[in-house]
Design a protein around this nucleic acid. Structure first.
Length: 322
DNA sequence: AAGACGAAAGTGGTTGA
DNA sequence: TCAACAACTTTCGTCTT
């Protein structure tokens, strides 16, 4: 059945787990460079700074010699929120062998048995930890199905931890709260997904998901601004295999629409869809209203209404094909 | 025949009394 | 708590390409 969605996932898969765009939206160059010391990602072609909020995981001190750099390095894996114990616990293997592969002596072996027993007990000792363990596996499943990169998953995991502490999960399904935190995390990081898309991927209906999401915002006192239609464009355009000039034109159209107040009170998804429709016609890469409506998860009617407004208020002549 | 159009009625969420 | 309201959806008949 869901042919369109399957295609979209296939296209999205190469970037899975990595920063999403490796091509520069400005000049189309693929030479995006990581500048670790400044924490920026910069296009090698035109110098556009693609993101500047990266966290420097290096040491916070300076080293004046190479010996010093070695001596003062950090150890241990980074803290991970998607692992229910934050990756801090020791893991005892199930094999009865030591590190060099030799069998353990009987006394040592019974000792290990005891340790292992307590490790398992301590790892999932409370209901909170059991909940977390289940939630984190659901989070991983959902996020990988939606092709959501690691940093956003981590943020979602952090939000979920907070929601457990606030006892928000009580009486609600874990799945619904997980989906809500993931949806919120995507929006916070300016990579929003349509609510429908998240709802479809999880086994939560849209209404429940929306309720949980609003509860999350209220209880954790986080403010997430309305998503901008511009944030959806790169995803939609790639799902429709539209060229980058069309994307640029779409952004222009949306910015002009916003300037004249056309976007107030309007569904960002519908606006994004309509702007893409107009841009695709203008640059002669026409897609049907139905195709665009499908990826944006709105109806053709909405695409139509928005597109009519845009054309009328911006004075765009779609026949002119500039 | 597919796509675009527009009218009319229905739906779910927000707002203000 | 409830009714009014705006935006969006569903449905359907008609027009255009």
């Amino acid at each position: 059945m869901d042919r369109a969605r399957g295609d979209a996932q296939e296209r999205a898969s190469p970037s899975r787990g990595e920063p999403e765009t490796q091509t520069c939206p400005e000049c189309g160059s693929t030479g995006v460079v990581e500048d670790i010391t400044r924490g920026e990602r910069v296009c090698g072609g035109c110098g556009l700074v693609l993101s500047d909020h990266r966290i420097d995981t290096g040491a916070e001190w300076r080293a004046f010699s190479s010996e010093e750099a070695d001596a003062r390095s950090r150890v241990g894996a980074p803290l991970r929120y998607t692992v229910h114990d934050k990756g801090l616990s020791t893991v005892i293997d199930w094999r009865d062998r030591d590190t060099s592969g030799r069998k353990l002596s009987p006394t040592r072996r019974s000792e290990i048995y005891r340790l292992r027993k307590w490790q398992i007990r301590s790892r999932v000792h409370s209901s909170m930890d059991r909940n977390l363990a289940q939630a984190m596996s659901e989070l991983e499943r959902l996020a990988s199905q939606l092709g959501i990169p690691k940093p956003i998953r981590e943020l979602a995991a952090l939000l979920y931890r907070k929601s457990i502490i606030k006892k928000l999960v009580r009486g609600r399904s874990i799945e619904a709260m997980v989906a809500a935190t993931l949806y919120a995390a995507c929006r916070i990081r300016k990579k929003p997904r349509p609510l429908d898309e998240v709802a479809d991927a999880s086994r939560v209906d849209k209404k429940k998901l929306g309720q949980c999401y609003r509860l999350l915002l209220r209880s954790l006192a986080i403010k997430i601004p309305l998503s901008s239609p511009i944030d959806y464009i790169s995803r939609f355009a790639s799902q429709l295999s539209l060229s980058s000039p069309v994307q640029l034109r779409t952004v222009e159209i949306l910015q002009r629409s916003r300037d004249i107040g056309l976007t107030i009170g309007r569904d960002p998804l519908g606006l994004a869809a309509a702007a893409i429709y107009v841009a695709s016609i203008m640059l002669d890469e026409r897609r049907t209203q139905r195709e665009i409506a499908e990826v944006a998860r709105v109806t053709e009617v909405t695409v139509r209404n928005r597109y009519k407004e845009i054309v009328r208020k911006l004075g765009i002549d779609t026949m002119a094909q500039i």
